[in-house]
């Protein structure tokens, strides 16, 4: 009986140690080089449908922090694709791949807007000269349960020089992050059901085109996630008529 107990606890201990080291992230190493990154992307895609998403040319390897990296590439099928990388379990891993060409929001930690990033790899179409990201919240007013309320409109712009940066990754501008943080803090004190912050702000992008008006959608889309820890959102095209111009 005594021996059984000792063996059982030893087995449990070893199992716990193995489990710990399987989950253990370790200290982040250097990013894979272009060839290795391309190989990793193709390896990840090989278990899914490929549809021409395999990497042909890695455009850049942008480290956002110690454990997160953004790697834009051009695919064999000619897509301007983006890949999201995370250092997890002692290895740089491809967490998500998108070939829709439009910008994305990457929330490195969902509760901290100062760690939200705007990332993009947009196909140079000859017509896009510049583009801007917009942080928008609709104006709202009225009365409910005899209480008057008013929510001011938020409209903030972050221009991007497309000629210089056809692809890139920038953190949310300081003011955007601060405003979001303020909103999130307040919503959390509401407690009960709305502990998770309900977002009522949106991010859009608006290409400034040489001739044609912006097309909404129209890009081929292919997005696939490999890791649950990656939280991304699409950024929609803004209808220019919705902008307020004082």
């Amino acid at each position: 009986m005594k021996w059984k107990l000792i063996i059982a606890s030893a087995v449990l201990l070893i199992a716990a140690i193995i489990l710990f080291f399987r989950q253990y992230d370790g200290k982040p190493g250097p990013l894979p080089d272009d060839a290795m990154a391309a190989a990793e992307i193709n390896e990840a895609l090989s278990v899914r449908e490929r549809r021409g998403a395999e990497a042909e040319q890695i455009l850049d390897r942008i480290k956002l922090d110690k454990r997160h990296a953004f790697i834009p590439y051009i695919s064999k099928g000619g897509y301007y694709a983006v890949s999201f990388w995370v250092w997890e379990k002692r290895k740089w891993r491809v967490g998500r791949i998108d070939t829709d060409s439009g910008p994305h929001i990457w929330k490195l930690s969902p509760n901290d807007p100062s760690r939200y990033y705007l990332v993009w790899n947009i196909r140079p179409q000859g017509e896009i000269e510049d583009f801007s990201f917009y942080f928008i919240r609709q104006r709202n007013a009225g009365r409910s349960d005899g209480i008057d309320y008013y929510t001011p409109r938020i409209q903030l712009e972050q221009p991007v020089d497309f000629g210089k940066q056809p692809y890139g990754a920038i953190p949310y501008p300081d003011h955007w992050a601060k405003l979001l943080r303020e909103e999130q803090r307040m919503s959390r004190t509401r407690g009960l059901f709305s502990f998770e912050y309900r977002e009522n702000t949106s991010i859009y992008w608006l290409p400034v085109l040489a001739d044609n008006p912006p097309r909404s959608g129209g890009f081929s889309t292919f997005g696939t996630s490999f890791l649950e820890s990656i939280r991304t959102d699409f950024v929609n095209i803004l209808n220019e008529n919705e902008l307020e111009r004082p």
């Binding site: 104006r139 007013a141 009225g142 009365r143 008057d148 001011p152 307020e244 004082p246």
Partner: peptide
């Protein structure tokens, strides 16, 4: 604050004092 709905319309419609402005 009882006319907060008016604030909304003052920003929304042309010829109103806050048209295209935020109060």
């Amino acid at each position: 604050m009882s006319d907060s709905a008016d604030w909304y319309y003052q920003s929304k419609f042309e010829h109103e004092p806050y048209y295209q402005h935020e109060r």
